[in-house]
Design a protein around this nucleic acid. Structure first.
Lengths: 331, 331
DNA sequence: CTGAAAGCGCTTACAG
DNA sequence: CTGAAAGCGCTTACAG
C-alpha cells in the first residue's frame, strides 16, 4: 500500500502538500495540485483511515443503534441511513439494543470508543440517557434521553386521517388509540381528536368515541368487536380509525367475522403503512411514515454543528386504498 | 481522555508494560499487572482504537454486505452476525449492495479501506469477484466470487422434506423447483429427487412429477393450478413439495380456490420458514433455514486463519405444521 | 503558497 | 520479565 510519503516523493512535494490536496484545501496552487493528483492516481493511493482517525479523533462512520434490525420499520430506516451516509462517503456501524436499556448504553459506548462522527439511536422504551459527548447524538422515531428527536409528525398525520374520513361523509367515528403512556400514541390521538372537534359543528355534528389498546393485531380485533357489537346497525360507527396498521388489520379481521363489508358497511384506516397494509384484503388506507425523509434528516443532523441540533417532526402522506369509502348512511 | 501514558505514570511502569497487560500478555508479573489494572480502572482508561488500528492495521470490526437489509432473511442474518460479533467485542459495519455488482464491489472496497478484520458478503446474483486480500472474506448464503461459502444444506433439507412426505404415506408427489439456473434451486431439487428415488421400490413405487418456476408466490400459484387441474381426483398428487415457502403459499392459495382442503385432500410443504409460513392458514410445514448457525459460522470463519477457510453446508430442521398430513387415499 | 517538523496513542522488536 | 525507543501514516500549527 502506498503511503502519503510515496505520493509526495513521486510528485516532488512535501507530505504536507499532499495532505492539503487530500483535504481539498484550496491553498494549493494548480500546477502542484495536478502533479499531486496525478501521482495519487498513478500509485492508486488510498489514505490510511486509521492514521487519519488518530490525528483527527474521528472517522467517517455513523453509528446506528436500533432495538431490532429485524423489525421491518427499523430495517428500512437503516437502509436509508446507510444510503444517505454512503452519499457522503460515510459508512454505518449498526448495533441492536434488543430493546434493553443496558445493552443500548453499552452499544453506544462501543460506538463512541470507535470514534464515530455521530450516532443515531432509535431508543428502547425505558432507555436512560448519557452524559454529554463531543460527537452529535440524535434520536430517531423514539427519543433517547435528552437528545433531539427526529420523528414522524404523528399529530399532523392523524389530522390527515380525520380529514379523509370527514370528507368521505362519516359522522359517527370510533378512534382506537395506542397505549397512552407512549408519546407516539398520545400525539396521534390528539391530532385526530382535535381535528374532529374542529370539524364538528352544531349543524353538522360528529360523534366520536375513543378506545385505548395496545398497538397490536389482537388489541385491534378485540376493540373492533367491542365497538361493532356495542350498538345496533344504526348507532354503529361508519368508520374506525386506528392508531396503527396492526390494530386496523385486527379490525378488518373482526369485520370479516361479523360479515361486515369493508368499505361498503364500514371504513377502516390505519397508521404507519407497514408492508402488510397493502397485502391485506381490502388493502388498507393509512398514513405512510416518511421513512426516507426521517433517515435523511437524521443523517443531516449528524453533519450539522452540534449546537444546532433540534427536534424535527416530519409530515407523512396519506395513502388512500380500498378500506375506506363514502359513508353508507348517506351524507 | 486518559491515555496509556497516564496509566503508565500512575502505575509507575512503562507504557510498554501497560500495553502488554492490555494485550493480556502473560509475561507481565502479578504485582505489576495488578497495579496497572488498578490504574486503568481508576482513570477509567479506554484504549484509543484508532491508534491501535494504525499500528496493527486492523480494527475489531467485521464488514457485512447484503443485497438489501430490508429483506427479512438478510436482516435476521445481520442481527445474528452482530450478536455473535459483539460476543467477541467486535462491531459490524453493514452496507447494502442493492443487488448491484458494482455497488457491491465499491462497498467491499470501502470496508477494506477501513481496515476491517474480515468481510462477510451475501452476494448479488451476478457479482464479480475480487483480487485476493489480506483479510478473510467469506460468502454467506450466496457465493461471492471464489470465496468460501457458508450456506444451508439445501440438499439435506430437501431430503428431510421428502422423508416427511413419504412417512405420511404419500406416493404420488409433485415437486416445484426454483429456477434451475440457480445453485440453490438445483441443490434443493436434487436432494428431493434423489431421496424420493431411493425411497421408491418396485413393490412400493412413488410417482414423482417435477415442475420448474420462479421462487415467488405467483409462480407457486400458477404451477399449483397446473398440477391440480391436470388430472382427475384419482391421479392428482396427494402432496406438493415446493422449493420455497413463497411457492408453497401460492399453492395454498390455489388449493383454496379449488376448494381443496389442506391437509385433508392435499399436503403442501415449503422451504425456508419465512415469517409468513407460520401466519398463513393452514400454517405451513417447511424446512427452517438455520439462520443463527449460519451467522455464527460466518463469524467464526472470519476469526480463523485465512488458510483454513472452507465451504460449509449447515443442516436445517423440518418444522412440521398443519399443511401436511397423512395420505388421504390411505397408505 | 509550501515545507519541515511535531505529535496523535498505541504496539513491538530490541536490549538488558 | 520490563523498559526505552522506534515507528505506524497521517494532519496541522509554525515558519518563511
Amino acid at each position: 500500500m502506498p503511503t502519503i510519503k510515496d505520493v509526495a516523493r513521486k510528485a516532488g512535494v512535501s507530505v504536507g502538500t499532499v495532505s492539503r490536496v487530500l483535504a481539498k484545501n484550496e491553498t494549493v496552487k494548480h500546477p502542484l495540485k495536478l502533479k499531486v493528483q496525478a501521482a495519487m492516481k498513478e500509485l492508486d493511493y488510498k489514505p490510511n483511515l486509521a492514521a487519519r482517525a488518530l490525528r483527527t479523533n474521528s472517522i467517517d462512520v455513523i453509528g446506528l443503534v436500533v432495538p431490532d434490525i429485524t423489525n421491518p420499520f427499523f430495517a428500512q430506516l437503516a437502509k436509508n441511513i446507510e444510503m444517505e451516509a454512503a452519499k457522503r462517503s460515510h459508512s454505518v456501524m449498526v448495533a441492536n439494543s434488543h430493546d434493553d436499556a443496558d445493552t443500548e448504553k453499552t452499544q453506544i459506548a462501543a460506538l463512541l470508543d470507535r470514534a464515530v462522527c455521530g450516532v443515531i439511536v432509535v431508543a428502547t422504551a425505558d432507555g436512560r440517557s448519557l452524559d454529554a459527548t463531543d460527537v452529535p447524538i440524535v434520536s430517531l422515531d423514539r427519543r433517547f434521553g435528552e437528545f433531539p428527536l427526529i420523528a414522524t409528525d404523528h399529530f399532523d398525520g392523524s389530522q390527515k386521517i380525520a380529514d379523509h374520513l370527514h370528507a368521505l361523509g362519516h359522522r359517527r367515528i370510533a378512534y382506537i388509540a395506542g397505549p397512552l403512556s407512549m408519546d407516539v400514541a398520545r400525539s396521534r390521538r390528539e391530532g385526530f381528536v382535535s381535528r374532529i372537534k374542529a370539524l364538528s359543528s352544531a349543524e353538522d355534528p360528529i360523534e366520536l368515541t375513543i378506545f385505548e389498546g395496545q398497538f397490536d393485531y389482537d388489541s385491534g380485533e378485540e376493540l373492533g368487536r367491542e365497538i361493532l357489537n356495542q350498538a345496533g346497525v344504526n348507532d354503529r360507527p361508519t368508520a374506525i380509525a386506528a392508531a396503527s396498521d396492526q390494530q386496523a388489520i385486527g379490525v378488518l379481521r373482526c369485520a370479516r367475522d361479523l360479515k361486515l363489508d369493508v368499505p361498503a358497511d364500514l371504513s377502516v384506516a390505519g397508521f404507519d403503512d407497514i408492508t402488510l397494509a397493502s397485502l391485506v384484503v381490502p388493502r388498507l388506507t393509512t398514513l405512510r411514515q416518511p421513512i426516507e425523509a426521517l433517515a435523511v434528516s437524521a443523517v443531516e443532523q449528524i453533519f450539522q454543528s452540534k449546537a444546532s441540533l433540534k427536534d424535527m417532526a416530519i409530515a407523512g402522506d396519506i395513502v388512500e386504498r380500498e378500506s375506506t369509502g363514502p359513508n353508507p348512511v348517506g351524507t
